[in-house]
Design a protein around this nucleic acid. Structure first.
Lengths: 198, 198
DNA sequence: AATAGATACAGACCGTAGTCTCTTCATTAT
DNA sequence: ATAATGAAGAGACTACGGTCTGTATCTATT
């Protein structure tokens, strides 16, 4: 990496850090791009050279979410447990992470952005690690006969994702005033009950 | 209603009809307020006198949705069927209506708006007729022992609403490319299975 | 070493949602 | 009948996300 590129990365990093801090402090919608470039002594040109939109600064955080799932959540699962138990545990850990680490405003912003832009959506990316995690588990569950007949692994992942989206959408909509842990437990409890065999 | 008010309502109606038509034609995001006021020979002053935002013109349609549920969907339910069957049927009718009549772009816009504005949210309004419909059914189901022990009517409504949100969010996100009917059937099938007794 | 090309960045500019002020005129009070 | 009030509306203006063009400087080529 030459001097020029290094300088570029430095600027990018500076913008990300300042932006994330401001967002965290006052909420995404209350921070302007003009303000971000002012406090970082950069410019619109610099900002939009590194990011295609204000939302994309968020993506920097967002990309790390699935990485976190893979590195820190999946290893916590106990292979001795049934798939249903492991799924329950994974979803619980995931929701705790979102509630405690990411927060509702970030979540809300992501959910809003995904709906609003024409740009490439992370939710729709079939290679998203989260989908792999769930698919692998579900396939194992089917092979072991833990699920009702008639569901494919893809079906189950789809249903789980829908459940997740609904719970997270509502939690964001309520601005974190409801307990994600409670809502999550009820939702996936009912859902996995309905999906499991016998 | 005097002459002045009548004139106001006439203008409002004119704007709503033109806006809805334009939205339907080219999508919400591709229609500007300037354009709406141009084709209706009105002005920004007139527009924002009657609506607090571009999104709110949508609310006019939206308010009619629940009215439609109450007037046209609920009467179709067969009181001889079990509550679970009626819930299944209601959700099916509801999703069909949204898919065929309202369309994904309107749905997407509503879901986006609810997340983005600080303004009063329709989803959060506890008096929303949809919640009443579901609550009444669920309470009856509990009284008749159709649901598992330990769930209150409120719990069940919450879970169903979350399921609904997840399915509709995803359908909108996919710009109607997935079958709402199929996704809905799988989601509520699993969910009601998980919630019902024995 | 000289030149051409590329790119990080600056900042003027644009499009659009939403605001503010001002005018008009029906309605109400005197 | 006349004056005061206030809502419907016109349209200039603002705020802000995003684009476009220009510039300086680093890098690659010969």
């Amino acid at each position: 990496m030459n001097v020029r590129q290094r300088q570029g990365q430095k600027t990018k990093k500076k913008i990300i850090e300042a932006a994330i801090a401001l967002f965290h402090e006052r909420g995404f919608n209350n921070v302007t791009v003009d303000e971000i470039v002012a406090v970082t002594n950069t410019s619109k040109g610099a900002f939009y050279n590194h990011f295609t939109s204000k939302h994309e600064v968020f993506a920097e955080q967002f990309k790390q979410i699935d990485q976190f799932y893979v590195e820190h959540l999946v290893p916590q699962l106990d292979a001795d447990q049934s798939v249903i138990e492991r799924l329950t545990r994974f979803l619980e850990l995931q929701m705790n992470y979102l509630q405690d680490e990411l927060g509702w405003d970030v979540t809300r912003t992501i959910y809003e952005q995904e709906l609003s832009t024409e740009r490439s959506s992370y939710f729709l990316d079939p290679d998203r690690p989260l989908y792999d995690i769930l698919f692998t588990l579900c396939q194992e569950g089917i092979d072991k006969g833990e699920f009702k007949e008639g569901y494919s692994a893809h079906d189950i992942v789809t249903v789980l994702i829908h459940g997740m989206r609904g719970v997270l959408y509502n939690w964001s909509l309520n601005r974190g005033r409801i307990s994600l842990a409670d809502e999550q437990r009820m939702m996936f409890g009912a859902l996995l009950d309905g999906l499991s065999a016998e």
